[in-house]
């Protein structure tokens, strides 16, 4: 009984007592502990699959599959979309990352749900409207999508995965994410602080 309770509270379910609400969001884990967990997942991907983690590639697969489904002739004419869809049919690992991203969605939900952190909300600073935040989110997302495609990966596929492999291009990418972020931070500060 004791170990069972412990295990549940380890996963984040609030123990009832002292008059506290059961739905109080749990504090986040220590970042170093969560980081070791993340590192072990990455290592497992290397050992089991011979590949690291990824996220942006799945979005490319979805976009090129969508383009080829909606307008096949258009997709065929475009080098990027046609090579991507060729790779999809020829290479099961393109699908692998789509399925992995579905896993990310599930895992994020499980963790958030168990820790009572699921909340329909908009994360933003106090000095910006919801509409303003949405505008920044859309533009930021679009810029990030372009950057990730140009670099052949994102924070997962390049920075994290390639970082652990001591991949030269990945380290350059990672360093310049920080440079780009710090360079732009001042101009968008109204959104966050």
């Amino acid at each position: 009984m004791d170990t069972a309770t412990k295990k549940i509270s380890f996963l984040g379910t609030k123990q009832i007592g002292k008059g506290k609400s059961i739905s109080t969001p749990q504090p986040y884990w220590n970042p170093y502990v969560a980081g070791v967990g993340l590192g072990l997942v990455l290592l497992a991907a290397f050992v089991i699959m011979g590949r690291g983690l990824g996220a942006s590639g799945a979005f490319s697969t979805v976009v090129s599959t969508g383009v080829n489904a909606i307008a096949p002739s258009f997709g065929e004419k475009n080098e990027f979309f046609s090579t991507y869809s060729d790779q999809v049919s020829a290479n099961p690992l393109k699908d692998w990352y789509v399925i992995e991203v579905i896993g990310i969605l599930i895992g994020g939900f499980i963790s958030g749900f168990l820790a009572h952190r699921f909340k329909k909300t908009v994360d933003k600073g106090r000095n910006i409207s919801v509409r303003g935040r949405f505008t920044y989110a859309f533009i930021g997302g679009a810029i990030m999508g372009i950057g990730a495609k140009l670099a052949r990966g994102c924070t997962s596929g390049q920075a994290l995965t390639g970082g652990a492999q001591l991949n030269v291009g990945s380290w350059l990418f990672m360093i310049f994410i920080f440079i780009g972020g710090y360079a732009a931070a001042y101009f968008v500060r109204r959104q966050w602080i």
């Binding site: 920044y136 780009g180 360079a183 732009a184 968008v188």
Partner: peptide
């Protein structure tokens, strides 16, 4: 790509 990504990230 990293520089562009960083700008998008903070936005």
């Amino acid at each position: 790509g990293g520089f562009i990504f960083g700008i998008g990230f903070v936005m």
